[in-house]
Each structure stands twice: as C-alpha cells, then as structure tokens.
Amino acid sequence: MSIQNLNTFDPFADAIKGSDDDVQDGLVHIRIQQRNGRKTLTTVQGLSSEYDLKKIVRACKKEFACNGTVIEHPEYGEVLQLQGDQRENICQWLTKSGLAKPDQLKVHGF
C-alpha cells in the first residue's frame, strides 16, 4: 500500500478512458449539496469498495442522528448520502474508526 510503485494503478488508464473522473485518485470526497431552502445533504464518495457501506451508513445514521442511504452510481461506485451538513462528523468518524486517514479526506464546500 505504502509503496507507490507496487500499486496496480495503470497511469495510462485515464488517458485511454478519456474521462477525468476521480474514482481512482484515492481520495474520499466529502461534499455538501444544497437542497430546498436551507436544507443540505452530505455525500461521501470514494470509500473503498472493500468496505460494507451499508454497515457504515447504519453506524453513521445512529451516530449523527440523521438519515442516510447508500447509492450505487455507475461512475463513482457506491456513494454514502447523509442528511444535513455532516461533513465535520463524517470526517471525525472516518478517522476515528480507521476507515480513512485524514490526508485521504477531501472536504469540499464552504
């Protein structure tokens, strides 16, 4: 994992595909999204598919006292979706539970 050269990442895969999606950038993107009025939701994209996201969402819902769901996206894979601005919470939780390192988290928004 820590040795870059041993990664199975193909540097030309991106060029072949011709799309600049960031599924493989190894980052967990935590975004906020505007809903109606002042309501927001938080999406977490890029969690390793080795994790059981359904379990994660269950834990998060309980922990943050918000609703949430897992959405299967053709391009971005499984995406976690939580109600409200949970960016701070999810960052702490992911770090605390060891699912992601702080430098893997990319928080977007204000």
Binding site: R31, H73, H108
Partner: peptide
Amino acid sequence: ASIKSGFQAVT
C-alpha cells in the same frame, strides 16, 4: 486539479 462536482445526489 480539474474542477469536478463529482457525485450529485438527486435533490
């Protein structure tokens, strides 16, 4: 970095 909005939930 290129600007990506990434996954967009249905709102």
